[in-house]
Design a binder for these strands. Structure first.
Lengths: 344, 344
DNA sequence: ACCCGAAGTGGAACCGGTTCCACTTTTGTA
DNA sequence: TACAAAAGTGGAACCGGTTCCACTTCGGGT
């Protein structure tokens, strides 16, 4: 186990001072004579020298690193989001430190502290909704915060990237209404999140423009983790007058909800028409293939990274940005007209 | 945007020297009078002081960080693995820097360089198979390397955690043979990986003990990325005498393979019996639910972390360790006796 | 009362980069 | 040819921790 060379080793071997090596390492930080530059480059290559990130960070005061704080990587939604973000970050030479919260504010708080210790220059997160002061403190210390998929109302000056929640919920609801359905259930995110509320609004708006009444019992706001989606589905099916259509607008709960449907032997779409908010290849492989609101994860990731890096480089207007990405509706075969639906 | 306090601020506010504060921060690094310890703790809390990780790393020479290098997080196998590893790492106070290789040795090489710059104390990876010298160099510089799911033969002294490849392939093959199948196709990983070879051996062994011949054309070793699995399936189906059963023993290619089956309108298990190596909730939600070799990701993750941390703390015997975890076979409804299979 | 070792403390070097600044050497221009 | 501006260079401080070591203080044993 040998020791890696340092900048002073390089300087000595090239017969120059560390200043010169540093200037070679960071172009535009000062002049270097072409001959010396070449020699330094040669020595660097010969010794296999690589600058230690820790040293750089210490003197710079911040790291070329961003934190990614998501609920849970075993959920394909977050996993794919993470994948895109890691990919985009790398192409900009930025590393990603990954933390999961399991939707637990305590774990989230711990993660934020750790990221602060690491002097990350940005954080991309799907926040739990708690830790308002902690998030504020983070921003206060100059960390660029971007929320994806959800907002925290109390945090006015954070950037947010999400899909068009209102619009997506409205469109999927309208589609089902167009098929003749009147009892449409909605499983969505917690009311404490902007996302959850916006989707409910879209759902209501669709009902209103069709002059249909809204049965509040058909709306279920459930947490992002655990088996809450499945439980909501179970309870919906057990209603005296069960729904004939279901929109699962809580991406993290799609799997749980669908599992419950399968377990209960519900036939799709003969018994129940289903639309889910998801972007998961498996939805297409089911029989029938599920109709989905496709979350454009690539776009979410790209915008999130753009925001973080843009702020890092100070090339972005001051105020907080809200970016809403259009989500595609992909009708497949999990929805049928009400006339062809078996009412129990 | 204010500035975070440093250890010197704390020392000044508590009326002690930085040495004392440092000793309070790191118990067992030296004596501190109880009264002063208490005062220092109070000041730390009051100022909200947190030690900068970069400073620590610089002087320690290595970071409390491990690198996780996987193919692709949009693949549920790697995503779930990452999830468990992040979780286990956190519980030991270790952070995880995530990098993806897309199975491209160049990207892998770049990742390793970056991790080296960061002075990570360990790397957990699903290696591409290339970059032998780079991996060796990493180990040479004192980085603990643990491979998951695959080995690199040329790298004798790396720890490896994987499932019992030979055994798993053998059992699934025997199961199908038991159902009467004689033309069983195998889609597995590249021959350049130990995993790929071991699974083929298991497959062959099952044939031998049943005195069945092996048709080499039924064995397809395909890369971990791209749509190679689907293509292999397409080509298998187009054979003059196509297989009546299929084992997809390349977790990264399960989705691609199944998609192709669905696209081609192959009925499971009426036309083809299927077993896949996977640990993905969606396999259960398909109709029919797929029979799987369940990869015990939790176990893989726990062992990987144990190895890395164990080596970091120097409390592990010298030589490289190979840990094989038993994988469960979960028969569901995607396999039928040959007698009930439609031969085209 | 005396001495020795342990407990407690702070000063300063060190880790490996970046950056400021003073200094020397070129260049360009009048 | 003279002299200011620009290019090139290296010394040293600095970032924020850890750690070694010298020094002081205290306690206990004889």
């Amino acid at each position: 186990m040998k020791k890696a060379p340092t900048i002073r080793d390089v300087a000595a071997a090239a017969g120059v001072s560390v200043s010169v090596v540093s200037r070679v390492l960071n172009p535009d930080s000062g002049p270097v004579a072409p001959a010396k530059r070449q020699e330094v480059v040669r020595v660097i290559d010969e010794l296999g020298y690589r600058p230690r990130a820790a040293a750089r960070e210490l003197s710079a005061g911040h790291a070329l690193t961003i934190g990614l704080v998501v609920t849970d990587l075993s959920n394909p939604f977050f996993a794919r989001l993470a994948d895109r973000i890691v990919w985009e970050a790398r192409s900009h030479g930025v590393q990603v430190v990954l933390m999961t919260t399991q939707e637990d504010p305590h774990l989230e708080a711990e993660s934020l502290d750790t990221l602060l210790d690491r002097s990350v220059s940005g954080v991309i997160a799907t926040p739990t909704g708690g830790n308002i002061e902690k998030w504020a403190r983070l921003q206060d210390l100059g960390v660029n915060v971007v929320f994806v998929d959800r907002t925290i109302e109390e945090l006015g000056d954070a950037d947010v990237v999400s899909i068009e929640n209102f619009d997506s919920a409205q469109r999927s609801t309208e589609y089902l209404i167009g098929l003749g359905h009147t009892r449409i259930a909605l499983v969505t995110g917690p009311l404490s999140t902007s996302t959850g509320r916006a989707r409910i609004s879209g759902y209501r708006a669709a009902h209103e423009s069709a002059s249909l009444p809204v049965d509040p019992l058909l709306i279920r706001d459930v947490p992002f983790r655990g088996d809450a989606g499945g439980d909501a589905v179970g309870s919906l099916l057990a209603m005296p007058q069960p729904p004939t259509a279901l929109i699962v607008a809580n991406t993290a709960q799609v799997q749980s909800s669908v599992r419950r449907l399968v377990q209960k032997g519900v036939r799709i779409p003969e018994d129940l028409s289903v639309i889910v908010f998801d972007d998961n290849p498996w939805t297409e492989l089911m029989s029938p293939p599920l109709s989905v609101i496709r979350q454009p994860l690539d776009m979410l990731a790209v915008h999130a990274i753009e925001l973080v890096l843009g702020r890092m480089q100070g090339r972005l207007p001051e105020g907080p940005r809200l970016i809403e990405v259009k989500a595609d509706f992909l009708p497949r075969n999990s929805c049928a007209p009400l006339a062809q639906t078996a009412i129990r």
